[in-house]
């Protein structure tokens, strides 16, 4: 019998933590105990780069986190979630299934011996993005000059600067205080984290923006994966698939409840019409492609997967 170590950033009692726990239980069930998964939550084994290196060395066998961090092996993987380019969630999924994106994952696997377990869009994160701000955001124009907190990603900073926001980078843990002191006016966050971080207390305007979609990839050490017998592997994949369905149900449920609670406490919630933002970004990305800053073929693949029936 095999035991795998699975690293995550999330606490056990968070919604994502519950999805991982369900996944571990299902795996045990479907493989008849042939594969046991021990979860190491809360960044116990280190931050992204450190865990990826442990994954590479087969010390850790599974890492449930954004696969964008694999950009250290295949830089194009930084581009699985560009801002404001997809019509809807399904469009993004079709893009993720193109040969182009698969070739990015394959390249990472070849270099580092780390591959994806199943379809990387299965397990939702977020489940969607919102802007949380202390001023209302009624239209795309309200982003002009908005002091918006961003993480230290050059790509995100450039995109939001192009959209007109005044971007300020801050560590996640200092956001609450910074909003209450007026250092920033808002931030973008998965809806799931807003209430947990008590952002609604200092920034009561919550606006759904669908800037991009996020999923949690289950990155797996290829050697460990291949060492499993066929039956165990089938059980593992079945558990993954079911955990994906569970994540969908759970994440939207949790989000609805959380929004309702925050509204009760005086928060406002609205869905933004993002078409002006999508227009701005279309021009921006064309310029970026012309300058050679985008992975080759990315914009084409996005266009090719657009739903023609619309």
């Amino acid at each position: 019998d095999t035991t795998w170590r699975m690293a995550t950033k999330m606490p056990v009692d968070s919604p994502e933590g519950r999805v991982f726990e369900r996944f571990a239980e299902l795996t045990e069930d479907y493989t008849d105990g042939a594969l046991t998964i021990t979860i190491f939550p809360n960044e116990q084994l280190g931050k992204e780069n450190a865990v990826l290196e442990q994954l590479q060395a087969n010390i850790v066998q599974l890492y449930a986190e954004g696969y964008g961090y694999m950009k250290k092996w295949e830089p194009a993987l930084d581009w699985t979630a560009p801002s404001f380019v997809f019509d809807d969630y399904d469009h993004w999924v079709r893009f993720m299934q193109t040969d182009l994106v698969q070739s990015w994952f394959d390249n990472a696997a070849e270099q580092a011996g780390v591959r994806m377990l199943g379809d990387p869009t299965r397990i939702l994160r977020g489940p969607f993005l919102v802007t949380v701000s202390n001023v209302p955001i009624n239209s795309a124009a309200d982003y002009q000059g908005l002091k918006l907190r961003m993480h230290e990603s050059t790509r995100a900073i450039d995109a939001w600067t192009a959209l007109g926001a005044e971007v300020i980078t801050l560590p996640w843990t200092e956001v609450y205080q910074s909003i209450s002191k007026g250092i920033v006016e808002g931030l973008n966050s998965p809806i799931a984290l807003v209430e947990a971080m008590r952002f609604n207390e200092v920034a009561p305007h919550i606006t759904r923006i669908d800037e991009f979609w996020q999923s949690i990839g289950f990155m797996v050490n290829a050697q460990a994966y291949e060492a499993l017998d066929d039956e165990t592997r089938m059980g593992l994949l079945k558990a993954y698939d079911e955990a994906g369905a569970f994540s969908r149900e759970l994440m939207f449920d949790v989000a609805q409840q959380s929004i309702a609670r925050m509204q009760e406490q005086g928060a406002t919630y609205s869905v933004l019409d993002t078409s002006p933002l999508i227009e701005t970004m279309a021009t921006y990305y064309q310029e970026q492609e012309a300058a050679g800053n985008l992975p080759v073929g990315m914009l084409d693949a996005i266009e090719a997967t657009r739903d023609s029936t619309q």
């Binding site: 280190g46 931050k47 450190a50 290196e53 442990q54 060395a57 010390i59």
Partner: peptide
């Protein structure tokens, strides 16, 4: 896997 030590030192 002693490489964990310098790696975690950086962490």
């Amino acid at each position: 896997v002693l490489q964990i030590i310098p790696q975690q030192m950086l962490e």
